[in-house]
Design a protein around this nucleic acid. Structure first.
Lengths: 209, 209
DNA sequence: ACCTGAACACCGTTCAAGT
DNA sequence: ACCTGAACACCGTTCAAGT
């Protein structure tokens, strides 16, 4: 009987994350309700408590899943772009913005409401994903691929690149670019100026190979 | 009897906005509850409905108030900076980041959860504040002060500057800069590279005076 | 006009109980 | 182990009623 329902032998957790993501995509985080979630997943409204301590931990799990996919997407983009610095930065930036556009539900949970305590609550989950992302991204934008030991100039350039791309991604989600220019075009047009220009003045540009 | 309570002759609306902001600052938007709001404002839990159709409209009003103060802060920064382009851009950027840092509750409501429908609901309020901010900011960052008629190159430079500063502000709220470097220092260090460099290639740099 | 309480349909979460 | 229903303390919102 492994096929009666699809949620009975260990995959309920994954199904809840996926279904939760659907709810968020359709109506925002506020609509992610444990009761509605159970209804959609064809399960009692208490079933989720077998897999998550409470609603916040479920959101933390969704956040985790989002960061994993995000990391994969950036990694793939870097690998595909080859060794050229500019090409890599551009690929990384495009992947960043596209992930935000194609997975707005994930991005919404990943960012979390800046002022709320949800982030703190989320970090109580065991995988402690919360502080990881910014460090993760800073590293990526230092060279575009594997983590590096930071030289001083590299650090602020990395942050500058991250800030630019993050700003573009979030502003696009707020439809700033929708009207006359896509974020993709924007990144392509401006990357020469924005990203290539952002090399540290110091000599140690490249990470030790 | 104009001094019994402070909320009885027309200022309940303002008091609710202020109290709501306190709640958001303390525990996030999710804690902004009409019942709790009433309790804090020493008023029945239904009192708010005299001033706002529902919770969403209250949030819209808070958002509006936030944008007004934001606009004032940017305007003041521009006026104080004088006519030099670089000085103006730097002042504008610092004011932007500082507003986010000093009013995280406002900023949280102003940004709204990207994927949710709250933004749309908010825009139902009569002042229609929602689409204004990005246009407002794009204009500011075109020259740093009064709205301009956009030349093509001006538009994308304006967006680039806005993206940079917005990215810095939101990343700081997520504590990326907290560890080793404040956003202020970051902006000062990088503004020469980031902002001054972003002049359009075309000749029409300055708006018609 | 401005405020109130009771009532309704929703929440998250706890608990005792079923397979 | 995994799932369930009843119950509790919360929500937003409507309505009839008070000053």
């Amino acid at each position: 009987m492994p096929r009666k329902r699809s949620y009975h032998h260990g995959n309920l957790r994954a199904a809840l994350i996926e279904t939760g993501l659907e709810l968020i995509a359709e109506q925002g985080v506020r609509a992610l309700t444990l009761r509605e979630l159970g209804k959609r997943a064809r399960v009692s409204r208490m079933a989720a408590y077998r897999h998550f301590r409470d609603r916040a931990e479920l959101l933390g799990a969704i956040q985790n899943a989002g960061f994993e996919q995000f990391a994969d997407a950036l990694e793939r983009a870097c690998l595909a772009a080859g060794d050229d610095f500019t090409a890599r930065m551009q690929a990384l930036s495009l992947a960043y913005v596209r992930f935000a556009r194609e997975h707005p539900a994930y991005f919404e949970v990943m960012l979390a409401p800046p002022g709320s305590r949800i982030r703190d609550k989320m970090s109580l989950g065991r995988a402690s994903p919360v502080s990881a992302p910014s460090r993760f991204c800073t590293r990526r934008f230092a060279m575009g691929s594997t983590p590096v030991t930071f030289a001083p100039g590299v650090l602020s350039c990395s942050r500058a690149r991250l800030a630019i791309v993050h700003g573009v991604a979030t502003l696009e989600l707020e439809r700033l670019f929708a009207a006359e220019m896509s974020a993709d075009v924007f990144i392509q047009d401006c990357s020469g100026l924005l990203l290539t220009g952002l090399r540290p003045a110091a000599p140690s540009l490249e990470p030790p190979k």
